[in-house]
Amino acid sequence: MLKILKYSFFDLMRSRWSYVYFLFYLLLGVVLLFLNNDLSKAVITLMNVIIVLVPLIGTIFGVMYYYNSKEFTELLLAQPVKRSSIFLGQYFGVALSLSMSLIIGLGLPFVFYGIFNSGAIWDFSLLLVTGAFLTLIFTALAFVIALANENKIKGFGYAILLWLFMAVIYDGVFLMSLVYFEEYPLDKFSLVATMLNPVDLSRVLILLKLDISALLGYTGAVFQKFFGTSVGFILSSLMLTLWVIVPTYFIQRMAKRKDF
């Protein structure tokens, strides 16, 4: 598996897309800092970008890579290599190279700007970690979609739909249901609904750092416990990890059963 991971990783590192992705984040970081002149505001803007863009790029890239390297994968399958290690190797190769582009691309301008001497360092590192998690999750979901669909166009369609659903539609439905059922106690429901969407989950994780003062404005024991103590942080981190593990497990299972 490690060999395939290494191969995929270096293959991607050499490819143009990684560089484009890396340069995009580098540019974003530089422009943000240049325009804002203020670290804490840049971190807020960056959060919006990471939460929307990282899942999108993760899904598209994952699906694209799977379909593009399909012939090579079929060649590998003819060799005496375990199936799960082929697909997992590819998956981790893609996810790691994407996360690396993200972390280095965003990290460099901030490091040069002096993030280490500022109070925003924890917010920023949390942002990068969340970004890496989102990459892992959405690339895995993309692989699952690609494995399930032979048809390229269909696969891409589902991938985009998945992103749209997680990033926008889910919140819309969530909001509507909260407003519609406002007579009922909703704090548990809203926390659970947040846990079920990795985009929301990472958003809340960052909110815990950035907007804690607003979040504490709500009267309710469950929210108080979740936001006021470290329970929220630990629980969201655990859920994010779970969100990585479950799709990865599905990749393995589907890879084992699939006919080529």
Binding site: M47, N48, I51, V52, A167, V168, I169, D171, G172, F174, L175, L178, V179, E182, L186, D187, F189, S190, L191, T194, D200, R203, V204, L207, D211, A214, L215, G217, Y218, T219, G220, F223
Partner: peptide, 20 residues
């Protein structure tokens, strides 16, 4: 305005849908 009406919606703060 929404948060005033339904305080639980605070959990959707800074979501893309809310921005829209």
């Amino acid at each position: 305005y929404i948060v005033n009406r339904t305080p639980e919606t605070i959990i959707l703060l800074r979501s893309l849908f809310i921005d829209i």
